[in-house]
């Protein structure tokens, strides 16, 4: 029995020394001195001990109880009053936490979407396997037009293809809804391009469309300006250059002031201070007529940019293939 008393005392002493946690001390109080506590149990045993040892045992147990109560009180008061000095090696790393990461293309896509959502644009979707009609004819790209050569196309069956741009979603949206239209569409597109540092047969586009009464070319520029400032920073400027896309007229290539050098000239912008980002323009009359809009009332603008391109410019990524390699050393950087 005496060894038990000593053992209990040692165990409690060790526990109190080790802990810095008041709750833990209170738990110890219950475990040792509570109704079902270890010390309480010993107190209950006193009456059952042989007569000759009862007195000594009783004194020892009571001494233990007194010591335990005092030690616990002392510890609690230490913890509440005295600033304990710790000595922790903070050069040691913390416990590792799970390191998940959204793909950089997702991050950029969501960023772009949030900019447009905040301007009241709806996000529309459409199928990746698309009818030739929505991908080409309805967008003023007839079968024998040289503009078809601008987009080398994967076919699945006669008349069925993998969409070469997100623009068919414009057509589907306009056929479904009447103006005003204010939408963007993001998604995967496919072109039968040979693979190199700036081409992959799979890529991601963001497409925008606004159609209403009185929408002007000036509005196009204004919205693109808001967009690039939202994505590249508030000092970024937009410049339009003449270009041709069959579904817009006038059509423009959109350039932004180089976010890397701030327009002073660097290798990324080929020292021009400007970087071409994608097409835009006023929606072609043929497109509006095809979806049944009255072109004497409604007009609008559209634009289509590559998400990969935005990410490449924003982060200085030189090779588009990296997006689809999924190397953790790449994905982990963003």
């Amino acid at each position: 029995m005496p060894s038990t008393i000593d053992e209990i005392r040692t165990a409690l002493e060790t526990r109190l020394t080790a802990t810095r946690d008041a709750q833990d001390v209170r738990n110890a109080q219950i475990e040792y001195l509570g109704k079902k506590g270890t010390v309480t149990a010993l107190l209950k045993q006193i009456s059952g001990v042989a007569e000759d040892q009862r007195r000594q045992f009783g004194e020892q147990v009571n001494a233990l109880k007194q010591w335990a109560a005092q030690a616990i009180e002392q510890k609690l008061s230490d913890l509440s009053s005295k600033a304990h000095r710790y000595d922790i090696d903070f050069s040691l790393p913390g416990q590792l936490m799970p390191a998940g990461k959204k793909h950089i293309l997702t991050q950029v896509e969501e960023e772009v979407e949030s900019v447009f959502l905040s301007m009241g644009f709806d996000i529309e979707e459409g199928p990746e396997i698309e009818q030739e009609y929505y991908n080409f004819e309805a967008l003023n790209i007839p079968a024998d037009h040289p503009a078809r050569d601008m987009q080398d196309t994967f076919y699945l069956a006669p008349g069925m293809l993998l969409r070469t741009h997100t623009s068919p979603i414009q057509v589907r949206t306009m056929k479904r809804e009447n103006p005003p239209i204010r939408m963007i569409a993001t998604g995967r597109c496919y072109r039968r391009d040979a693979i190199d540092a700036s081409h992959t047969p799979v890529f991601t586009q963001v497409e925008g469309l606004v159609v209403d009464k009185g929408i002007t070319f000036a509005d196009l520029k204004g919205v693109l300006q808001e967009f690039v400032r939202g994505v590249f920073g508030s000092s970024t400027n937009v410049k339009l250059l003449p270009s041709f896309f069959p579904f817009v007229e006038p059509g423009a290539e959109t350039a932004i002031s180089c976010p890397i050098c701030g327009g002073k000239g660097c290798p990324t912008c080929k020292n021009s201070g400007w970087i071409e980002m994608g097409g835009s323009g006023m929606v072609h009359q043929n497109v509006l007529q095809e979806v049944g809009y009255d072109t004497s009332i409604y007009q609008g603008f559209a634009f289509g940019w590559g998400i990969e391109r935005i990410a490449m410019i924003k982060y200085g990524i030189r090779d588009i293939r990296m997006f689809y390699d999924n190397d953790l050393d790449f994905l982990g950087q963003f």
Binding site: L117, K221, G222, V223, K239, L240, E249, H284
Partner: peptide, 30 residues
Amino acid sequence: PEYVEEIVRMEGYNEFPSHTPNLVLRRGSE
């Protein structure tokens, strides 16, 4: 509109004002 493009081409694509459209305030949805 093709003639409009020629006007823009000759005046200069960046000689036109930038303006944000007067659109009804509303929430974008997905």
